[in-house]
Design a protein around this nucleic acid. Structure first.
Length: 200
DNA sequence: AACGGGATTGCCT
DNA sequence: GGCAATCCCGTTA
C-alpha cells in the first residue's frame, strides 16, 4: 500500500459540502508530520453549510475564526473546541461561499510509533494524526513532507448510511458514514445503519 | 472589559 | 448516563 502521492484536485473540493462529504468516504487522509507518516481511510464525515445552516460556524457571517471557510476550496479549517480538542475540516465550495466538511473518523492504516492510536472522533483524529490549529488554512492539494492531503482510496463496500449530525439540533441528514467500519464515532445508535440511519 | 458556551472526550457512578 | 475539564471566540456592554 504505497502512499498515494497525488492529492485530490482542487476541483474535487469546489462543490457543495454535502457532495464532497459523501465522496470523501473511502478516501485516504495523509499527514507527513514530524513524527512520521499518518494514513487513514475516511469512514465518517459531516457537511456544514453557510447562512442557511445555524449549526455552521459561518451561519452569522465572516469572523476571524471561520475565515478559512470563506476562502478557496481545498484548504483545511481547524478550530479548537471546549478548550481541549481540535477539529479538522475541509473547505469546500467557491471562495466567498462558506462551506466545510468535518472529518469525524478514519480507520487508521499507519501511524508513527507511539502515536495516540485512535481516530474515531474529530478530537481523537486530530490527536492521532498530529493535526492542530497550525494546520488551519493548510493547502490540501499538495503532498510532501509536512503536508496534509487526501487521495482516492478503496471504495466503501456496501451501503453508506446517513443521519443528522452529532451534537447538532437539525434534522437534516448531513452526516455520512460507513456502517461496516468499526471506527465510526458517536453513541451506539449513531453507528447503526438502521433504522435511524438511511441507506444511500 | 466581561461573559457565556461550544461540530468533544474521558473518567466517574 | 452524568459531568468536569479548559480556553478561545463571538456577543454584548
Amino acid at each position: 500500500m504505497p502512499p498515494a502521492r497525488h492529492p485530490l484536485p482542487r476541483a474535487f473540493y469546489d462543490r457543495p459540502s454535502p457532495a464532497v462529504a459523501r465522496d470523501l468516504l473511502g478516501c485516504r487522509l495523509l499527514h507527513a508530520g514530524p513524527q512520521g507518516l499518518c494514513v487513514g481511510r475516511i469512514v465518517e464525515v459531516e457537511a456544514y453549510l453557510g447562512r442557511d445552516d445555524p449549526a455552521s460556524h459561518a451561519a452569522r457571517g465572516l469572523t476571524a475564526r471561520n475565515a478559512p471557510m470563506f476562502g478557496p476550496p481545498g484548504h483545511a479549517y481547524v478550530y479548537r473546541i471546549y478548550g481541549l480538542h481540535d477539529c479538522f475540516n475541509v473547505v469546500t465550495g467557491a471562495a466567498g461561499d462558506p462551506m466545510a466538511v468535518l472529518v469525524r473518523a478514519v480507520e487508521v492504516e499507519a501511524l508513527p510509533p507511539g502515536a495516540y492510536p485512535r481516530a474515531d472522533g474529530p478530537g481523537r483524529l486530530c490527536r492521532a494524526f498530529g493535526i492542530s490549529r497550525h494546520h488551519d488554512r493548510a493547502d490540501l492539494c499538495r503532498a510532501g513532507p509536512g503536508c496534509l492531503w487526501i487521495t482516492t482510496g478503496p471504495a466503501v463496500r456496501g451501503p453508506v448510511a446517513t443521519t443528522p449530525r452529532i451534537g447538532v439540533a437539525d434534522p437534516r441528514a448531513l452526516r455520512w458514514f460507513d456502517p461496516a467500519s468499526g471506527s465510526v464515532s458517536g453513541p451506539r445508535a449513531a453507528r447503526a445503519a438502521a433504522p435511524a440511519g438511511r441507506l444511500g
